Simulated scan of single mutants.
Amino acid sequence: MPKPKVVTTISIIILLLLLGCKPSEKGVITIAAAANMQFAIGEISKIFTKQTGIQCELVISSSGKLTAQIKEGAPYDVFVSANMKYPEEIHANDLAVRPPKIYGYGQLVLWSMYDNIQPSIEMLKDQNIKHIALANPKTAPYGQAAIEVLENNGMYNQVKGKLVYGESIAQTNQFITSKSSEIGFTAKSVVLSPKMKGNGHWIALDERMYSLIEQGVVMIKRENRNFKNAQQFYDFLFSKEAKEILEDFGYLVTK
């Protein structure tokens, strides 16, 4: 069974618009997913396709950017966000089939690929740490959570000159894995993914130091589409199998 195809946001929009393709009519659904979910949603969609035969096109970006694209008419069927704020915004703009629902709770970690660095909040002030990677807090919920951690530990002003912002968690991970940043904040789902597991050193951050990351999902209103396919994926995201996958990737499915 073919693996779910991950393509860039711009390329899929151009492809669908130029070819006039209606994915749902051909047994394909388009899922817009927050970057922290890249690995987990890939596994979930693979199992979903195996069981249903419905193919999944994945568009990975920050939740804020995906929200802007949906409001501009991007041809997505399901939006899997990194928080509830953006799905609620979609619903408030009458673009969702129904109100958003929480499918899991994200966890923030501090990660470094340098052998001589054992991550800790205090060490962020170390003079040897020149760059601290995090996702853009304006569009990425995990970036906002990272800022909250720094503020709640009273060190934001001390390290703000070191902060390097990625467009999303995906770009933030590139900063960390390429070692262009000595350390960075990312999602626990990233360091537990098969691709990244065992690489570098990381610590889970105290959940009391940042707001609960409630990750929500909505079905997007679209004309001329097979509603049933999108509904099947939406329901599958709350199935026992999907919840087990989410837990394997470090998400909490109950609070």
Rank of each mutant, 00 (worst) to 15 (best):
G198S: 03
M209A: 03
G184Y: 00
F249K: 06
D77P: 12
G42D: 02
P99N: 06
G42Y: 04
I102D: 02
Y103K: 13
L205F: 13
L66A: 01
G104F: 09
V190F: 09
T254N: 12
K221T: 11
S24L: 10
A140Y: 02
S239G: 05
V191T: 02
P194H: 11
Q55H: 11
N152D: 00
H91Y: 14
V149F: 01
Y210L: 12
V159P: 05
K240N: 07
M123R: 13
E57V: 13
T30E: 11
Q174Y: 14
P100I: 07
P99M: 10
G143A: 12
P23Q: 07
V191C: 04
S180W: 02
L110F: 08
F185R: 03
E89R: 08
N93K: 12
Q127P: 03
Y142C: 02
E88T: 11
M1N: 06
T49V: 05
K243D: 11
E148N: 03
R225W: 05
E244M: 04
S239Y: 06
A140C: 11
M84Q: 08
V59G: 04
Y156E: 01
I132L: 07
M37W: 15
K162D: 09
Q107I: 05
S239N: 14
A145G: 09
L163V: 02
L205S: 06
N136M: 01
E122V: 07
L108Y: 10
Q174E: 15
Y103V: 00
Q215I: 04
A242D: 05
E122G: 10
T186D: 08
A34H: 13
G250I: 12
A145M: 06
S81G: 05
Y251K: 05
S178W: 09
V109A: 10
L163R: 04
S189W: 08
K243M: 10
Y114K: 15
P23H: 09
Y114A: 07
Y105Q: 11
I47A: 11
D94M: 08
K22M: 02
P119N: 07
G198H: 00
S24N: 06
P4Q: 14
L19M: 07
K228C: 03
K3C: 11
S61D: 15
R222P: 04
I31V: 15
L192K: 03
S112D: 01
K22C: 01
S168Q: 13
Q171W: 00
G143L: 09
I70T: 09
M155I: 15
P119R: 06
T9S: 13
S81D: 09
I147N: 02
L66C: 03
K71Y: 03
D94N: 15
L150M: 15
A242H: 06
G166H: 10
F227A: 13
A170E: 12
M155W: 09
I169Q: 11
